[in-house]
């Protein structure tokens, strides 16, 4: 028995675990949380995930958190096509890519996008209501990030540094995909799953970074990803990240 708690629209952490389950052919129960209603901060969910973060996987009654670690667990615990290379050197490379995508690229994108969408996300709530919600965010770093985005207090130098890192990461990704159809070696792996969920939407959001002149191999890789049956199913079963225009409404 497998259950997955996640947010819509599907991307980043929720999306990579959702896609890993689909690639392995694992049947699971969807437990969608409404982020805009802050359902992830309600006591019944905090009992499952004390940090109030998504996703959480429940397998045979046991709780699993942390996206990267869940994805490796899914590959470890279930039958189905392997999502990690067999060769130890390639595995090391895959884990470094996953870390880079999650921590360096992912956090930079998160900083940029939270600063764009959080004011719309909290909607018409008053400052007092927002402060009360923020007090319920268990993780102090997450609370600080929320407050900075809400009050638009992120130092411009940090936002610029994030832009620089996203641009540098795009070059690194393009170079990797110029020599190989997948991020690590010659086979599809968790690194592709992570990159698709953290980064593919940049092609729509930031065409000045991802386009057919600067990053043709990255665009071709996104095309290959979208042809995969599991990715088609992911897109059919869920909403994909909104365009910038939709986010600003």
């Amino acid at each position: 028995m497998v259950e997955l708690y996640f947010f819509q629209p599907l991307g980043s952490n929720s999306g990579r675990v959702f896609l890993a389950l689909l690639e392995k052919g694992v049947a699971f129960t969807e437990r969608e949380l409404n982020g805009r209603a802050f359902e992830h901060l309600r006591p019944e969910y905090l009992a499952v995930n004390s940090r109030g973060q998504v996703p959480t996987l429940i397998h045979d009654g046991r709780i699993f958190t942390e996206g990267t670690a869940i994805c490796e667990y899914i590959d470890d615990a279930f039958e189905g096509p392997p999502l990690r290379p067999r060769d130890p050197r390639e595995r090391w490379s895959m884990r470094r890519w996953c870390r880079f995508i999650d921590s360096d690229l992912g956090r930079s994108l998160m900083m940029i996008h939270w600063n764009r969408i959080v004011p719309a996300f909290v909607g018409s709530r008053t400052r007092e209501e927002v402060e009360r919600i923020l007090c319920g965010v268990p993780d102090p770093d997450r609370r600080r990030a929320w407050r900075r985005a809400y009050l638009q207090e992120t130092p411009p130098a940090e936002l610029e540094e994030s832009q620089r890192r996203v641009a540098a990461a795009s070059q690194r990704i393009e170079a990797a995909l110029a020599g190989s159809p997948w991020i690590v070696g010659t086979r599809y792996s968790l690194a592709d799953i992570d990159l698709f969920n953290f980064y593919a939407f940049v092609a729509e959001w930031s065409p000045q970074i991802v386009n057919d002149r600067l990053t043709p191999h990255t665009l071709a890789w996104i095309g290959r990803m979208r042809e995969r049956p599991a990715v088609r199913e992911l897109r059919a079963r869920t909403r994909v990240p909104p365009s910038p225009a939709a986010a600003s409404t």
Partner: peptide, 28 residues
């Protein structure tokens, strides 16, 4: 990842648990 590489490339005297749940705990 260097330590995991060592454990996977040189399997004797394992430093990762033999079960998937244990390995998840290590990674967390």
């Amino acid at each position: 990842y260097l330590c995991e590489f060592l454990d996977e490339a040189f399997p004797s005297r394992p430093l990762l648990p033999s079960d998937a749940r244990g390995r998840w705990e290590v990674r967390v």
